[in-house]
C-alpha cells in the first residue's frame, strides 16, 4: 500500500485555516475547535474510514491554548504525527495529545513576550506616533509590518513543524528559543523605557517660588521645573512602577485606568495638574 502523505495544497489550506484559530475561543476548551478546524484538511487526506476520522476529530477537540502565531509549528508537528499514525506507525492518542500539550505551554511562553510584549507595542507605538500627525502612514506601517511578521511566523512555523516532526521537541530544549525570547525582552524593555520618558505627559504647574528678578522680570519656579531639572520624566517613571506593582497584586487594569482618570479630574480641579 502506498504511503499516505499530505499534499502542498493540504498544508496551504491548513495555513489559511490557522488564521481563524481563536474564532470560537470559549472558556471551556479555548482554542480547541479552531485547532480541530485547522487539522481537518489533514484528517480528510489521511483517514478514509469513518471511525478513524471520528477518533482524529475527537483527539483535536481537546483543550488547546497558546499564542496564536506560535501555534503554527504545533499544528505542523501534529500533522506530521497524524501522517505517521495513518501509515501504521504505533502512535497512540496519548502521544499526540502529550506532544500538543507539552509544546503549547513553553511556546506560549516564547510567543507572548515576542509578539505581544515586543513586536506589537514597538510597531504600534511607532505607528501611533506617526498617526498623531494625521498621516495614514502610521496605521499602514503598523498593519503591514505586523502582518508580514505574523504571516512569516505562521507559514514557516507550520512547514518547520511538519518537516521536523517530533524532532522540534529536542530543538526547543536548546538555547535558541531562550536567546530569541531574551533578545525580544531586551528590545521591548528598552523601547518601553523610552516611551515612559517621552510619550507620557504629566505637568505639575504648582508654583513654588515667585520673585521679581534684578532685571524686573518675574521669575516663576514650578514643581514641574524642579522635577525636570532633577530628571525629565521622573513622575511618569514612578507612576509606571506604581502601576506595575498594583497590577502584580491583581488590581484590574480597567479599575486602575478609572482611578487615574479620577486623579486627572481632581488634579485639574485643584490646579495641581495641567
Amino acid at each position: 500500500m502506498e504511503d499516505k502523505k499530505l499534499t502542498k495544497k493540504d498544508l496551504n489550506s491548513m495555513f489559511f485555516r490557522s488564521w481563524f484559530l481563536l474564532g470560537s475561543f470559549n472558556f471551556e476548551r479555548m482554542q480547541s475547535i479552531g485547532f480541530c478546524v485547522t487539522l481537518i484538511p489533514a484528517i480528510k487526506r489521511l483517514y478514509s474510514k469513518k471511525e478513524d476520522q471520528r477518533e482524529a476529530l475527537k483527539r483535536h477537540l481537546e483543550f488547546f491554548n497558546t499564542q496564536p502565531f506560535i501555534s503554527a509549528p504545533i499544528m505542523g508537528v501534529t500533522a506530521a504525527m497524524e501522517e505517521q499514525k495513518a501509515n501504521g506507525q504505533p502512535i497512540d492518542d496519548a502521544t499526540i495529545s502529550g506532544v500538543k500539550v507539552g509544546l503549547m505551554g513553553p511556546l506560549a511562553g516564547v510567543g507572548d513576550p515576542i509578539y505581544w510584549g515586543t513586536l506589537r507595542p514597538v510597531l504600534a507605538a511607532l505607528g501611533a506616533s506617526i498617526a498623531l500627525t494625521g498621516s495614514i502612514v502610521g496605521p499602514l506601517l503598523f498593519f503591514i509590518l505586523f502582518n508580514v511578521c505574523r504571516l512569516a511566523t505562521k507559514w514557516y512555523g507550520l512547514k518547520y513543524g511538519y518537516e521536523k516532526g517530533t524532532e522540534i521537541v529536542s530543538d526547543m530544549s536548546g538555547n535558541r528559543l531562550r536567546k530569541l525570547t531574551e533578545s525580544a525582552s531586551i528590545l521591548g524593555l528598552f523601547v518601553m523605557g523610552a516611551l515612559v520618558s517621552k510619550w507620557t505627559s504629566i505637568n505639575v504647574p504648582l508654583v513654588v517660588s515667585k520673585y521679581t528678578g534684578t532685571d524686573g522680570k518675574e521669575v516663576i519656579t514650578t514643581v514641574q521645573m524642579i522635577l525636570d531639572q532633577l530628571m525629565p520624566g521622573l513622575l511618569p517613571l514612578l507612576l509606571t512602577f506604581l502601576c506595575m506593582r498594583l497590577l502584580k497584586k491583581k488590581v484590574n487594569a480597567i479599575a486602575l485606568i478609572f482611578a487615574l482618570f479620577a486623579v486627572g479630574i481632581i488634579g485639574y480641579a485643584l490646579g495641581v495638574l495641567a
Binding site: V196, T200, S201, L239, L247, I257, F261, G264, I265
Partner: peptide, 11 residues
C-alpha cells in the same frame, strides 16, 4: 490630562 499619563498602565 489623565489621557497623557494613563498610557503608563499599558506600559
Amino acid at each position: 490630562i489623565a489621557g497623557g499619563f494613563i498610557v503608563v498602565v499599558g506600559y
